[in-house]
Design a protein around this nucleic acid. Sequence first.
DNA 1: TTTTTATATTGCAATATTACGATAATAAAT
DNA 2: ATTTATTATCGTAATATTGCAATATAAAAA
Lengths: 110, 110
Amino acid sequence: MGATKTEHFTEKQNQIAILAKALGHPARVAIIEYLMSVDTCICGDIVNVLPLAQPTVSQHLKELKNAGLIKGNIEGNAICYCIDEKALKTLQSYFAAISSHLEKKKNNCC
Amino acid sequence: MGATKTEHFTEKQNQIAILAKALGHPARVAIIEYLMSVDTCICGDIVNVLPLAQPTVSQHLKELKNAGLIKGNIEGNAICYCIDEKALKTLQSYFAAISSHLEKKKNNCC
DNA sequence: TTTTTATATTGCAATATTACGATAATAAAT
DNA sequence: ATTTATTATCGTAATATTGCAATATAAAAA
């Protein structure tokens, strides 16, 4: 064993889990924050910004891309990675819904 | 190797990563959603609701608790787990900030 | 007190993640 | 055509996660 039983959960639950998992590493959070901070879309300096070796950064970028959090095109020997707004909007909506639900409830146990 | 290099990232980045990682599994997303759906705080039926064995569920609950997403007290031989609103508020604020930042920017590359 | 009920812990096997050196691939620059 | 610069892939070691059977723990019920 060791493999997640995705088939037992809803599409939505799996989707949120995939996005959350992709952000479940500080390097990937840092990458998203960096992509937000730069104006340009070409940003070959991600490797220099992060305290990790180039193959490791490349791997993290791949995971963010697989999860759908970033989009990337190859521009010559530079990369053009940027945030996929749709994915982040999904997360924003999800947690906004949870928050408003919790506020309505005001349950005060625990 | 294989251990995350947390020390190279900011407190905030690590905090978000910890919360996101905890939600990086559909079972744990399902648990949060279930805790939201029930009115009561005592909810010993989590095990019956999920398609996983009892020790596995117990482990997922432990991880959610470690990450700070749920709070739990033992109430006799039942458990009282509930959502820690603070943690979910943190996530809500974080993604709200990202979303509003992205909307302001309207970058249209990629 | 013994049984029942409910959750936690232990131990283990299967799998996944993290990290990086070495190397490949690719395109711009010389 | 060769060099240079940049990103991707491969291979591998260390560690973490996932899942569950077996067992422990703890309190209510009998």
